[in-house]
Nucleic acid binder design. Structure first.
Length: 257
DNA sequence: ATGGCCACCGAGGGTGGA
């Protein structure tokens, strides 16, 4: 079973890339972020024609998340329960017995800003809710654009901004791990300077001036089934790409349909 | 040295992203 996460930075613009990628990579589950489209504009017909179910939580201009799956999703939940927030950043669904939580974490803009405070508050609410989700669903994956580079090796050495690498953000990431989740990427040997996002400016992709901020965190029972975790840089090389590229895991074993 | 892109909305540039 292959599960992917990809911040597409506008589903409308990236739909051709997405459809090509689904056909070539054949993932079973795909978590998408930054749809930047309302639910009524979601390209459901095209996604279904590609062989996928889709559930989504969209918003005009900003944010928006979706889960695509070959097997029909169950137990769909939108937004963090009890957290009053107009921004559409969370969707969850159970697919073949795996609880999949797709998140587009706040950017935070700058350490100390109002948006930074929102980011930390959002992370706190997410963590509290996730503890409940884990209690109900031992087989769980939290996938998405975390907007946090958890360790120094997850940011290019020349990254000078504090945002995405600050101590409070990294502490919040550790709190998620503290729930019993594992960073799938670090369960395997990986190349140095492995990143999932590169700025559109400064020829950042060519220089590999990036950050690893897109993650799949898995619960312990799922970690035992992990076969691999990798970053697929191919979509980032296309014309008019998203600034993020997909990250995937493959789980071994059989899954109920 | 500085800032360099892209998508959005909407009809100008401003906002946001990371």
């Amino acid at each position: 079973m292959k599960i992917a996460t990809w911040n597409v930075n506008s589903l409308k613009v990236r739909l051709p890339h997405l459809l090509d990628w689904l056909a070539s990579e054949q993932p079973d589950v795909v978590c998408l972020q930054e749809l930047k489209c309302e639910d009524k504009a979601f390209p459901l017909a095209e996604i279904e024609a590609a062989g996928y179910h889709a559930v989504f939580n969209g918003q005009k201009t900003y944010n928006g998340v979706a889960i695509l799956s070959r097997i029909a999703p169950e137990g769909v939940l939108r937004d963090i329960p009890g957290f009053d927030d107009p921004q559409k950043r969370i969707i969850a669904a159970t697919i073949a017995g795996v609880r999949v939580i797709c998140g587009y974490f706040p950017n935070g803009q700058a350490v100390g800003s109002e948006k930074f405070a929102y980011k930390l508050g959002w992370l706190e609410a997410l963590t509290a809710w996730l503890a409940q989700e884990l209690a109900q669903h031992p087989r769980l994956v939290l996938a998405g654009d975390f907007n946090v580079a958890p360790e120094d090796r997850d940011a290019h050495p020349d990254w000078k901004e504090e945002i995405h690498v600050s101590a409070p953000e990294r502490a919040a990431f550790q709190a998620l791990l503290g729930l019993g989740l594992l960073d799938a990427f670090r369960r395997f040997d990986q190349a140095e300077k492995s990143f999932s996002w590169w700025d559109y400016r400064m020829m950042a992709f060519r220089r590999n001036f990036g950050l690893r901020i897109d993650h799949l965190l898995v619960s312990a029972p799922l970690a035992e089934q992990l076969l691999r975790c990798w970053i697929d840089k191919a979509p980032r090389k296309l014309e008019r790409p998203s600034d993020h590229t997909p990250v995937l895991i493959e789980l071994g074993g059989t899954f109920p349909r």
